[in-house]
């Protein structure tokens, strides 16, 4: 196996800039000075490992965290975590959080006039298996208004946080649902120019993971950065 020297830098148009004025909160929070290109040293090439101990095996099921069943359409959200070279990322922590079926978060700052659900917190986590697979049971989140612009509504989404095996693979993203007409107007979804990159944020209805009479399945694969695979001696300009 080649020694990892660097992880790949993003392809043009596939990752957002910090400043994106359509998403108004970026204006006072985006760095204004140029970023410094960071070489990948051990600090960047390593990362924390988590296990069942901290994560409970039942943490993947968001519908079983309270006395009763949450209101809403029960769904299975599953997929694989891969790197850019197509290799599965095993045993990595996946954390999710989401609004309830009415589009409300149980959070002190969420003032949306929609009901909270005493049977739904909206947080889950799991570790990927040997093949990089993860699976959650949850309910389909609702859309909700936000104050970014007049009549702004977030499309239904589930937040994902992933670690991978190196700090440079750390990723927080959002999963969307197919056919959602709100996607076209959403500044976050539209934060990158690459159309295919945007489409990859949308899950697909998946008959294979759908459980008859119980829950529809949605598939969402996540790709983390992958190591450059060009051997050192073949790299142009590398004199070592």
């Amino acid at each position: 196996m080649p020694r990892i020297t660097e992880y790949r830098r993003p392809a043009a148009g596939t990752q957002p800039d910090y400043l994106f004025p359509r998403y108004a909160s970026t204006v006072k929070r985006a760095p204004t000075q140029p970023l410094v290109l960071l070489p990948h040293t051990q600090t960047e090439l390593t990362g924390p490992v988590f296990g069942y101990g901290e994560v409970k095996r039942s943490d993947h099921d968001l519908t079983k965290q309270h006395a009763g069943d949450p209101i809403g359409e029960r769904i299975i959200v599953s997929g694989r975590v891969l790197d850019e070279n197509g290799r599965p990322v095993p045993n990595t922590l996946v954390e999710i959080w989401q609004a309830n079926s009415a589009g409300r978060y149980p959070h002190r700052i969420d003032q949306h006039d929609a009901p909270t659900d005493p049977n739904f917190t909206g947080a889950g986590r799991c570790l990927t298996d040997k093949r990089g697979n993860y699976r959650f049971v949850t309910i389909r989140p609702g859309a909700y208004p936000w104050r970014n612009h007049y009549n702004a509504w977030r499309p239904a989404h589930i937040h994902f946080s992933l670690f991978g095996q190196a700090m440079v693979q750390r990723l927080v993203t959002q999963m969307y649902f197919p056919g959602d007409p709100l996607l076209a107007e959403d500044p976050m979804f539209n934060c990158v120019p690459d159309e295919r990159a945007r489409q990859r944020l949308i899950s697909t209805l998946d008959w294979e993971t759908t459980i008859p009479e119980i829950a529809l399945g949605y598939r969402f694969d996540v790709v983390l950065r992958g190591p450059e695979e060009t051997p050192m001696e073949n790299r142009k300009g590398d004199k070592r």
Binding site: G122, T173, R198, V222
Partner: peptide, 16 residues
Amino acid sequence: LHATTSQTVGPYLHIG
């Protein structure tokens, strides 16, 4: 493959 596009943690990050 290309790495999945990053998205904000948003205001409700504490939940997750």
